Simulated scan of single mutants.
Amino acid sequence: MHIVTSGGEDSSPRSTRPLSTVLKALALLDHLAGLDEPVRVSSLAREVGAPRAEVHRHLVTLESGGWMERLPDGAYRLTLRPAHLGHTALRQAGVGERTSPLLAEAARAAGEVVSIAVLDSDTARVVQRAEPGRALHATLLLGDRLPLHSSATGRLLYALADEESAAVPARRGVPLPSEDDIALIRATGWATSTDDAEDGVAALAVPLCREDGRTVAALSVHGPRDRITSAGALAVLRPLTHRIEPLLRLDGAAFGLRA
């Protein structure tokens, strides 16, 4: 393939302007990832604050590319293609290769599921997990999205997020931890789940940080409430953070974070 540029123009990536249409389509995908149900064009246009015709063109384009599916009633929903891309990104970043043995070891030590989750717009998303190798009543799947106000990982990630990241869910009006909860999480450096689900599931999460101290992920243990104790979970998670952080080389890129 031949690329032709003008003689006086700097063709380096830094001087190349991004395509605004592609940026809008990607922003639309980010928004769609936060929805639990299929959405109609008019509703989506209102939510993102864009003209209906423009949103419809993006959806039709994404449908043609295999990223969206149009249902018989006219609503749109994501296909499984984004999930495949996400798994590929994790493999290329080396997240699974670097952390799987350590997570598996910790899961066996705790006797429960151990996972890594990241802040993904207005939710926490599980990007890596390991099981203890025995039957469990509590399940936590790769790709699961956890609420910011009640899950241990969501509460921790929101409480320790930078101002720009924390502003996104606040603008969208999703339920968030209280100011008292945020202060307590920042003071202790860990968070627990607060929901009283009938299945009795509980979790405790601690941060994974870069060298500059910025939190980029949450490491958690997840299991039946009657088996999860703060002392027991911290005894497993705290040493694990010191082993995982150097291996991941937490530069943020592996987790899709901007510098």
Rank of each mutant, 00 (worst) to 15 (best):
S11E: 05
P13N: 07
P13V: 05
S15K: 14
T16Y: 06
R17N: 02
S20D: 09
S20M: 11
K24F: 09
A27S: 14
L32G: 07
D36N: 13
E37M: 13
E37G: 01
R40G: 15
V41Q: 11
A45C: 07
V48S: 02
G49H: 10
H56K: 14
H56C: 04
L59W: 14
T61G: 10
E63Y: 10
S64V: 07
G65S: 04
W67P: 00
E69V: 10
G74S: 03
R77E: 11
L78T: 02
R98L: 15
S100D: 10
E105L: 12
R108A: 13
R108K: 15
R108S: 09
A109G: 11
V114C: 08
S115L: 12
V118S: 04
L119D: 03
L119A: 11
D120W: 14
S121Q: 12
S121E: 11
D122P: 00
A124K: 12
V126F: 03
V127E: 09
R129E: 12
A130Q: 10
G133M: 11
R134W: 15
R134H: 15
H137G: 02
L140M: 09
L141R: 13
L142D: 03
L142Y: 01
D144M: 10
D144G: 03
P147Y: 13
S150F: 05
S150M: 07
S150Y: 04
S151P: 01
A152Q: 05
G154C: 09
L157N: 05
Y158G: 03
E164N: 07
A166K: 09
V168Q: 10
R171F: 01
R172W: 12
P175A: 02
L176A: 06
P177L: 13
S178Q: 03
S178C: 04
E179A: 15
D180T: 07
A183V: 00
W190Y: 15
A191N: 05
D196Y: 09
A202F: 08
A202I: 02
L204H: 07
L208I: 04
R210F: 02
R210A: 15
T215A: 15
V216S: 14
V216H: 14
A217S: 06
A218N: 05
S220G: 01
V221G: 09
H222G: 01
G223A: 10
P224N: 08
P224A: 15
I228E: 03
T229D: 08
A235Q: 13
H242I: 00
H242P: 00
R243E: 14
L248V: 06
L250K: 01
L250Q: 05
D251V: 02
A253H: 11
G256D: 08
L257A: 11
A259F: 11
A259R: 13
